[in-house]
């Protein structure tokens, strides 16, 4: 090979080297966006018909704590439970007071009268309005994960996701009965609780509703623990529930209609008392990533308060013109 040809080859090779290194060095900077070819695309399921949105977000405020856990309404105040504290806010988002809790808290019952019931790691405690400890029961085992509480007169319902059971207790903490154990005679299918998402609530008549999240259904129990009724459908469509554990949170309005909050595709929806979808409270687009479903509370004006765990915000929704039709 002649020297001239070698020179030409070398120049071409050198240019190619410069081109490859230069292109990669300049064009491939850290922080430059790259599309994800393996994206789990759930956007098509997040699309909703805007005419079905019945509520508007009227107020949002930040919770000044890194680990909010639950929300409840007490008269004109909003109670936000965090891992270590209970914080009171007024409706403008101004912090009124806060008090320390004796253990890691997990959930708060809707407030009746002046007693605040809080579910902790393996215990349940109640406080008066000033944060004074009134009662504390520790009769739950190591496996217990208390995820929801409801109080009706002298009865306290405790949802234990760890043992997959609901306890009916008196206010002294004695377990009166277990509700929801698999029992074919009573027509009880048994709970499938794959994750610590296990909510319960009482309707206007004092009947217990429990979210059987593994079956995507809301189950209604008689006082003797037999199944009264149930509704819910597994479906990615707007009127169903999907994922392993939905509805992760729910609340019952005074007219016995249901507000449900879901994780995965985060959304808050309104169902009537028979489980027929009425409309959307909060569309998926309002939430960030949906690893947690917001906790719900309902105030005297039937506004829906949602505690957004991703943004650590209290978000208040009110019925709009659409919904008043």
């Amino acid at each position: 090979m002649k020297r001239k040809h070698i020179n030409i080859i070398l120049v071409i090779l050198a240019l190619a080297i410069v081109f490859i290194i230069g292109k990669d060095f300049i064009g491939n900077k850290a922080g430059k966006n790259m599309d994800n070819p393996y994206k789990l695309d759930v956007d098509q399921f997040k699309k909703i018909d805007s005419t079905t949105v019945l509520y508007n977000e009227i107020k949002t405020f930040q919770v000044n704590d890194s680990s909010p856990k639950g929300i409840a309404v007490a008269g004109k105040q909003i109670l936000v439970l965090t891992e270590k504290q209970l914080i009171r806010y007024d409706y403008s988002g101004k912090e009124l007071s806060r008090f320390e809790l004796p253990d890691t808290a997990n959930c708060i019952a809707p407030v009746t009268k002046d007693q605040i019931w809080i579910g902790m790691l393996h215990s349940v405690a109640s406080f008066d309005a000033n944060g004074k400890l009134l009662t504390r029961w520790k009769n739950f085992d190591e496996n217990s994960v208390i995820t929801s509480l409801a109080v009706s007169g002298k009865t306290v319902y405790v949802a234990d996701a760890g043992n997959r059971i609901v306890y009916q207790c008196n206010t002294n903490g004695e377990i009166l009965s277990k509700i929801g154990e698999k029992n074919e005679q009573k027509g009880v299918p048994g709970y499938i609780i794959p994750s610590p998402c296990f909510d319960l609530a009482l309707d206007d008549n004092g009947f217990l509703w429990v979210a059987n999240t593994g079956r995507h259904s809301l189950e209604n129990y008689n006082h003797d623990g037999s199944l009264r009724t149930a509704w819910g459908e597994s479906s990615v469509k707007i009127d169903g529930f999907i994922g392993c554990c939905n509805p992760a949170q729910f609340a019952i309005l005074p007219d016995n209609s249901f507000v449900t909050a879901e994780k995965g595709i985060p959304r808050i929806k309104l169902y009537d008392q028979h489980g027929v979808l009425q409309g959307i409270v909060a569309a998926p687009q309002l939430f960030d990533n949906g690893w947690y479903a917001p906790d719900l509370a309902i105030d005297v004006n039937q506004r829906i308060l949602a505690l957004d765990f991703d943004r650590k915000q209290v978000r208040i929704f009110e019925k709009n013109v659409n919904g008043n039709k």
């Binding site: 190591e142 496996n143 994960v145 996701a161 760890g162 043992n163 997959r164 499938i192 794959p194 994750s195 610590p196």
Partner: peptide, 8 residues
């Protein structure tokens, strides 16, 4: 460390 949530 204890499990976060008991399995079935």
């Amino acid at each position: 460390s204890k499990q976060r949530f008991p399995k079935p």
